[in-house]
Design a protein around this nucleic acid. Structure first.
Lengths: 173, 173
DNA sequence: GATATTCGATATAGTGCATAACAATTATCA
DNA sequence: TGATAATTGTTATGCACTATATCGAATATC
């Protein structure tokens, strides 16, 4: 696997080529054989995931939200009154790593930590008005640009089937 | 998104529970609502990818190979005589980051760097005999354990369809 | 032959992920 | 009730992966 974002075979750059190939006969270059790699589910899974995240970032760039931040806002909206541990756990984020993330969102006034009166150890998380507004705009961008593009490429039926299989893997694997 | 490996809601640990819920009536806990999150392709994509990589590591653990290392060995086997830049590029690895990776593989005697006679700047990469042997064993483990498990969960037809859609995304998205 | 390009490599920074440990608070149990 | 254990948010820290700039050596281009 591996697969980073950048690093496409030829990183297009207008300059003098330092190659010869075209001069000699046998251009054994062209493109390498992926071989069994194209049958490795994990490989395609990672490449696809990187592309999708990349597109997500582009589509929602005006709001400066990462996929992770968007998922937090979504979850806070659907589950008000929860504390950090609960939100972090359902997203698969470790509590220590969730702290800095919340600091970022809170410093942008997208959400708030409120000391719980029941349990003064925990912080109840709430979206602010601005947080709700940003989330609404983000949802619209995601739906009309990001997911819409996936529908174009895959077709609605395939997209649904793909989502279902991915959920199956995440659930039963 | 987000989604790390660990951090399942309850990280099983035999100890005294510091909860009350079961005592009081309304257990409003249970499980949070994912909401639109379950319709976000990128979210399921990432969760599935993490699970698949996790399983890959388990299945191939006796050989101590990461998905990235496995992909390099596969590519070297199919494309002998290539240099570092070519291999790194087709895998989406940046050349600087590929150096340490090759150091690891070479120190384990799985592959070799050979100064090219045509172009003394570049290193031709070759699998060693041990590298070929390890790759063969890894392929077997991946096929009989890793991919076999995916076939069980998804079914062969779905697995093929999934692979096709992921490739489509990686290609046309 | 002078200049630009490529190759492998180093240094470095940013991000994500993971674990240990701590103070404050709460739950449990004797 | 008091002692002990557990939980919450937090900090510190380390590891892995990713990304960019830069370098010397070698090669290509003009």
């Amino acid at each position: 696997m591996t697969v980073s974002k950048t690093a496409s075979a030829a990183a297009a750059k207008p300059s003098r080529p330092a190659r010869k190939e075209l001069a000699e006969g046998l251009v054994d270059d062209a493109a390498l054989q992926l071989g069994e790699l194209s049958e490795l589910l994990g490989y395609s899974l990672k490449r696809a995931q990187l592309r999708v995240f990349e597109d997500f970032l582009r589509c929602v760039a005006p709001l400066q939200l990462t996929p992770a931040q968007f998922s937090v806002l979504l979850l806070l909206d659907r589950n008000p009154g929860r504390n950090q541990t609960e939100i972090a756990n359902t997203l698969g984020i470790l509590r220590p790593n969730f702290v800095a993330m919340l600091d970022g969102l809170e410093s942008r006034d997208l959400c708030t930590r409120i000391r719980s009166t029941n349990d003064r150890r925990s912080h109840i998380l709430m979206l602010t008005d601005k947080g709700r507004a940003v989330l609404a705009r983000a949802k619209k961008l995601v739906a009309t640009k990001h997911e819409a593009r996936l529908n174009e490429v895959l077709g609605p039926a395939n997209r649904a089937a793909l989502l279902d299989m991915l959920a199956t893997i995440a659930r039963e694997f």
